[in-house]
Computed example of a mutant assay.
Amino acid sequence: MDDTTIPPRKPLSEAAKRALAEAEARRAAIDAAQKDRPKEINGRNGPEPVRYGDWEVGGIATDF
């Protein structure tokens, strides 16, 4: 028997299908909104610090 075989999945319920469709629509709306924003000049590189709760400048991290 091959260990890499994937077992068959259960069919999704209608509620799960609606939830997946809503999530995809939400992601598409966010992507469209981000494309419309102007490019930031002299901004920080890397992940948004507010999202992760840490600010790091010159190797020193500050938690709020």
Rank of each mutant, 00 (worst) to 15 (best):
D2R: 02
D2P: 00
D3F: 11
T4H: 13
T4Q: 11
T5W: 15
T5M: 15
I6R: 07
I6Q: 12
P7Q: 07
P7C: 03
P8F: 00
P8L: 00
K10V: 06
P11D: 03
P11K: 00
L12K: 07
S13A: 05
E14N: 11
A15F: 02
A15E: 09
A15I: 02
A15K: 02
A15D: 08
A16W: 07
A16Q: 15
K17R: 14
K17W: 06
K17V: 08
R18F: 09
R18W: 10
A19N: 11
A19L: 11
L20T: 11
L20H: 15
A21R: 04
E22C: 07
E22W: 07
E22M: 08
A23Q: 15
A23K: 13
E24Q: 09
E24H: 05
E24F: 03
R27D: 10
R27I: 04
A28N: 10
A28F: 06
A28D: 13
A28V: 07
A29V: 03
I30D: 08
D31N: 07
A32R: 04
A33W: 05
A33L: 05
A33M: 07
Q34P: 01
Q34F: 10
Q34S: 12
K35M: 03
D36N: 10
D36S: 10
R37C: 03
P38Y: 01
P38E: 03
K39C: 09
K39S: 13
K39R: 14
E40M: 14
E40L: 15
E40W: 10
I41F: 07
I41D: 11
N42R: 05
G43R: 00
G43N: 02
R44V: 02
N45L: 12
N45W: 10
N45I: 06
G46E: 01
P47Q: 12
P47I: 06
P47G: 09
P47E: 12
E48S: 09
P49Q: 00
P49G: 00
P49C: 00
V50F: 15
V50S: 15
R51A: 15
Y52C: 15
G53L: 01
W55C: 08
W55E: 10
W55A: 08
E56N: 05
E56K: 02
E56P: 00
E56F: 02
V57L: 10
V57K: 06
V57H: 10
G58W: 00
I60H: 06
A61K: 11
A61D: 08
A61M: 12
A61N: 11
A61E: 12
T62N: 03
T62A: 05
T62S: 05
T62K: 03
T62L: 05
D63T: 14
D63N: 15
F64Q: 09
F64V: 06
F64P: 01
F64T: 07
